[in-house]
């Protein structure tokens, strides 16, 4: 019986193991674990109270040129419509990751998704 030092199946295992490592680092070393918890909407420089992505809802936000409609569903958020010409904000689609940023600059509305690190379950006052 002749054995290779390392068989082809071994190589597959080695490749898979090495591919697994970066994934482990990204999964365990980012506090947010990718997905954000809440969205901070800034209208004309003023920040609205943070909105949870867990609660599905549709918001109409008055921007500087008209109303933008923002939809929150399944832990994601997107611009549904906006009165701007380019419609880039609408075309950017759904956002759900921590640190993701979407904006309708003509209407001066921006939103930033943040993760669980800054999040509290409830407040004492």
């Amino acid at each position: 019986m002749k054995t290779d030092l390392i068989t082809r199946a071994d190589w597959l295992v080695i490749a898979a193991a090495i591919a697994l490592l970066p994934w482990l680092y990204s999964a365990f070393w980012s506090d947010n674990r990718g997905v954000g918890d809440e969205v901070h909407i800034v209208v004309d420089g003023k920040e609205l109270p943070a909105i949870s992505l867990q609660q599905d809802q549709t918001l109409t936000i008055q921007g500087s040129i008209g109303p933008s409609v923002v939809k929150i569903a399944d832990g994601r958020v997107r611009f549904l419509s906006s009165p701007c010409r380019g419609q880039q904000c609408v075309h950017s689609g759904w956002h759900q990751h921590n640190g993701e940023f979407a904006a309708c600059l003509p209407n001066r509305i921006a939103m930033l998704i943040t993760g669980s690190a800054a999040r509290f379950d409830t407040f004492s006052y």
Partner: peptide, 12 residues
């Protein structure tokens, strides 16, 4: 099919 070699086993 073809068995893993010692390196694959050891890694797993």
């Amino acid at each position: 099919g073809q068995r893993l070699g010692p390196v694959g086993y050891s890694l797993l």
